[in-house]
């Protein structure tokens, strides 16, 4: 059973380098299980999704990206502000020709650059359109929409489209559009999930972002702890390593038993090096545990994803999707 039964729009953010695209993709795969249709969007023109899945760069067009057990499908869309504006003009105002004229005069570039709020409304407006799109039978075309959103530093501003546009347009169509997007973003149908590593800065930024999102009345979802370390050490060994009471020489018989006494490096050196590696490992575990306490203190549902030694490929994404499903995020 998912922790987010009413949520259909999952916004995934995180500090740069924490793996938010990976988590967004794994979440999309997890949500697609059991025959669901999921759209995975990106808005920053990075083509992060295409790279992750090792496919050609995504156009401004919904493309089948991956399938999930039970007949589910994940489609992907790279949203581009200019294309979204042209589409919007055409859809609502039938401004096909004028739209292209705008582009030719550099108006779109000008307007979206000089008024970043307009750009964000266009980007989130497309997500909103996909979220609300319905098939002939009245059912939503997508059961879930997952947005690989801008990083935590920019997310409150990106999602708070209303406030952004308010300074520029007090009335008018763009304002109306911003209002209806805001309604969806602030509803129970949306959750903003935050991805973090167990390191000082990402945890700090996560806490800051939760504060800002809450102040903007945007619904904060779960915290995904990515690349969490696990340990093969028993509690007793860990304590001894941390206390520095372990004697490297005591490891020598074991290394001989394991056939590590025929290397160019002496067994006692190897033993010392192993111990120093383990000491570093234990320090990091301690640090991670301290930060994990901080994450728990944020009082949000927490999901842990393991560190994968081999890097991220499709198999790894399915593995992470499994982990998210088991823990109730998807």
């Amino acid at each position: 059973m998912s922790d987010w039964p009413r949520v259909r729009l999952h916004v995934v953010t995180g500090k740069g380098g924490t793996g938010k695209t990976t988590v967004a993709a794994a979440l999309a795969l997890g949500l697609a299980r059991g025959g669901r249709q999921v759209l995975l969007c990106e808005v920053e023109g990075r083509q992060g999704i295409a790279r992750l899945f090792d496919v050609e760069p995504l156009p401004y067009e919904e493309r089948l990206l991956a399938v999930a057990p039970g007949g589910g499908e994940v489609r992907a869309l790279a949203i581009d502000a200019e294309a979204a504006l042209l589409e919007y003009l055409d859809m609502y105002y039938r401004l096909g020709r004028a739209g292209r004229a705008l582009d030719r005069f550099g108006v779109i570039d000008f307007a979206t650059t000089i008024a970043p709020g307009v750009r964000d409304v266009l980007l989130s407006g497309k997500v909103f359109e996909a979220y609300r799109r319905r098939a002939r039978d009245g059912h939503p075309v997508y059961d879930h929409v997952v947005l690989d959103a801008p990083p935590t530093g920019r997310i409150p501003r990106f999602l708070n489209v209303n406030a952004e546009v308010a300074g520029i347009a007090k009335v008018g169509p763009i304002r109306k559009q911003a209002d209806s997007i805001m309604q969806v973003l602030q509803s129970r149908g949306t959750a903003v999930h935050l991805v973090t590593l167990l390191e000082d800065m990402p945890v700090q930024e996560t806490a800051d972002a939760i504060g800002e999102l809450t102040a903007a009345e945007l619904p904060v979802g779960g915290v995904v702890v990515n690349q969490a370390r696990s340990t093969p050490l028993t509690a007793t060994t860990r304590k001894a390593v941390a206390a520095g009471t372990m004697n490297a020489d005591e490891l020598v018989p074991a290394l001989e038993q394991a056939g590590l006494d025929r290397l160019d490096t002496s067994t006692s050196t190897v033993a010392q090096q192993l111990l120093s590696g383990a000491t570093d490992h234990v320090h990091r575990l301690d640090l991670e545990e301290r930060l994990m306490d901080e994450v728990d203190g944020l009082e949000r549902p927490v999901y842990r994803l393991p560190q994968l030694g081999e890097g991220i490929d499709l198999a790894a994404l399915y593995e992470l999707a499994d982990a998210l499903c088991e823990q109730g995020m998807a």
């Binding site: 003009l89 105002y93 004229a101 705008l102 347009a169 169509p173």
Partner: peptide, 22 residues
């Protein structure tokens, strides 16, 4: 002529006040 199309399109999308401010 092009400008007329452009400004009227902008007016429709952004509203007249926005264009004036711009």
């Amino acid at each position: 002529v092009g400008l007329g199309v452009v400004t009227s399109a902008l007016n429709k999308v952004l509203g007249a006040q926005v264009l004036t401010d711009m």
